[in-house]
């Protein structure tokens, strides 16, 4: 059972948003840039850049949102913060250092699923929140808010030419379960549903073909 009410949770998020404003716009633009890189196709994308950017977002959310804000009302956030930081480090190591993440849009089930999730994370989340009457600073943006960033990350990992290493799925899965259960308890049904979809996305990523049939066009692959 959660030790706080929805009112308090919203208040903590609002304080976080106010404290970092307007960095959430920069985080969101970073997400849009990653989408644009993938949309432009092979040869023009920079897989390492996408991995690095994604890693920075996870490091930020872990170190700032969880450890400095949510931890004030939820003791487990200390561990969640460390988990998000770990995810950031793993993304850096796997994607930026070892170049094991190759992002490509393929018109198969995983690709279409990924594209839908990207749309939800980047566009639907802020639009729904804005239409709900929230001030811009209170909106959950991909890049700085944990839930849309988790959706975004899973969407990105669905858009890989080869299956990403499974260790990159552990933290998003843990967060999807924890955040989904918390959202359900707080009565935020749409977020609980979104987290359930993330669990399905992780299952799809996990069972993707080890090697894609499509050409990856990555001459410098290690």
């Amino acid at each position: 059972m959660l030790p706080f009410t929805k009112e308090v949770y919203d208040s903590v998020f609002a304080q976080y948003s106010a404290a970092i404003w307007p960095l959430q716009i920069i985080g969101w633009l970073a997400c849009v840039s990653m989408v644009a890189c993938i949309a432009m196709g092979p040869g023009r994308t920079s897989d390492r850049l996408i991995s690095s950017t994604l890693a920075i977002l996870w490091l930020w959310i872990g170190a700032v949102y969880h450890l400095q804000h949510l931890a004030s009302i939820l003791w487990i956030s200390d561990f969640l913060g460390l988990a998000f930081v770990l995810q950031g480090i793993m993304l850096l190591w796997t994607g930026a250092v070892r170049n094991q993440l190759v992002f490509r849009y393929l018109s198969n089930f995983a690709g279409i699923f990924g594209a839908v999730l990207l749309t939800v994370a980047v566009f639907a989340y802020p639009i729904i929140a804005w239409s709900d009457g929230r001030p811009l600073a209170g909106v959950q943006f991909s890049g700085t808010a944990p839930t849309p960033t988790t959706i975004f990350t899973c969407a990105i990992l669905l858009l890989t030419a080869v299956r990403p290493p499974r260790h990159l799925l552990a933290v998003p899965l843990a967060w999807a379960i924890i955040a989904g259960a918390a959202a359900w308890e707080l009565g935020i049904t749409e977020e609980a549903i979104a987290m359930s979809v993330v669990v399905v996305a992780i299952a799809v990523i996990s069972f993707k073909a080890r090697q894609s049939q499509a050409p990856t066009s990555r001459p410098c692959a290690e």
């Binding site: 959660l2 030790p3 706080f4 009112e7 308090v8 208040s11 903590v12 004030s72």
Partner: peptide, 13 residues
């Protein structure tokens, strides 16, 4: 004080 006093930094609460 479980839940009821866990209001973080919110001055109004």
């Amino acid at each position: 004080t479980w839940i009821t006093f866990n209001v973080g930094k919110n001055e109004a609460l």
